[in-house]
Simulated scan of single mutants.
Amino acid sequence: VARTWLTFLRALELAKKTDSGFVRIRRDPDEEALAEALQTRVYGVSTVLNVLPEDEWLESEAVFERFSDEIPTWERYKDPTRVEDVWRERVGNMLEWAVLLGLAERSEDGYRRT
Rank of each mutant, 00 (worst) to 15 (best):
T7Y: 01
L9T: 01
R10C: 11
R10Q: 15
A11F: 12
L12Q: 00
L12Y: 02
L12A: 07
E13H: 13
E13Q: 12
K16W: 13
T18Y: 09
T18Q: 11
T18K: 07
G21Q: 05
F22D: 11
F22S: 12
F22A: 09
F22G: 08
R24F: 13
R24W: 15
I25P: 04
I25D: 10
I25V: 15
R26C: 13
R27P: 04
R27K: 15
R27D: 13
D28N: 12
D28G: 09
P29S: 05
D30W: 05
E31F: 03
A33N: 06
A33Y: 03
L34N: 02
A35K: 01
E36V: 04
E36S: 08
A37F: 03
A37V: 07
A37P: 02
L38I: 04
Q39R: 15
T40F: 06
Y43N: 12
Y43A: 13
Y43E: 11
G44W: 01
G44R: 02
V45I: 08
V45Q: 03
V45D: 00
S46K: 08
V48P: 01
V48M: 06
L52P: 01
L52F: 04
P53V: 06
E54S: 10
E54V: 11
E56S: 14
L58I: 09
E59Q: 13
E61T: 14
A62E: 14
A62M: 12
F64K: 01
F64W: 02
F64Y: 12
F64M: 05
R66H: 06
F67N: 04
S68F: 05
D69W: 04
E70D: 13
P72M: 04
P72L: 07
T73N: 07
R76N: 05
R76K: 14
Y77W: 13
Y77F: 14
K78E: 14
P80I: 00
P80R: 05
V83W: 00
E84M: 08
D85K: 10
V86N: 11
V86P: 03
W87G: 00
W87K: 04
W87Y: 15
R88W: 04
R88Y: 06
R88F: 05
R88Q: 10
E89A: 13
R90N: 12
